[in-house]
């Protein structure tokens, strides 16, 4: 469990549209660069958050632009913790099996890669339902 005494560095709330992905990436970069995190880790965190938010826009809000996505970024000298909260349809991509590229290709499909990528990029990826209508994706990256 994440201790409660960690300071929230920053919070971003955006509508559930794909044009906000650039804003989300900028927010993550701005709030990790200053804390001395190396470039490789920053790039991985940015991509993982992009993938998580893309999944929310696609699956939780079904591309409805009216939904809200809240991103909370916390850090200490050992790790970066990102919590991404939405109020859309509950979905659990943790249950999605590892993608079979060959099969997806044969079926002319390009989806299902995001969750797999998030797990490769981060040390922890956890989906949960935090209240009756709020879902949370918890992403953790250890810095040492």
């Amino acid at each position: 469990m994440i201790p409660n005494n960690q300071k929230i560095i920053n919070e971003l709330v955006v509508k559930s549209t794909t044009d906000n992905l650039a804003t989300i990436r900028k927010f993550i970069r701005e709030n990790t660069s200053s804390s001395g995190v190396d470039e490789d880790a920053i790039s991985k965190i940015i991509l993982a958050v992009d993938e998580a938010c893309t999944n929310i826009i696609k699956h939780a809000y079904k591309y409805s632009p009216e939904g809200e996505i809240t991103i909370k970024l916390q850090s200490d000298n050992k790790k970066i913790i990102i919590k991404i909260i939405d109020e859309g349809k509950n979905f659990n991509p943790e249950l999605i099996p590892e993608p079979d590229l060959k099969r997806l290709q044969k079926e002319h499909k390009g989806g299902g890669l995001g969750m797999f990528l998030m797990k490769k990029l981060m040390d922890k990826v956890e989906y949960s339902n935090i209240s009756h209508n709020r879902n949370q994706v918890l992403l953790v990256k250890y810095l040492i």
Partner: peptide
């Protein structure tokens, strides 16, 4: 930059 949507 590329995300999985691009790879897809």
């Amino acid at each position: 930059y590329i995300s999985s949507a691009g790879l897809g």
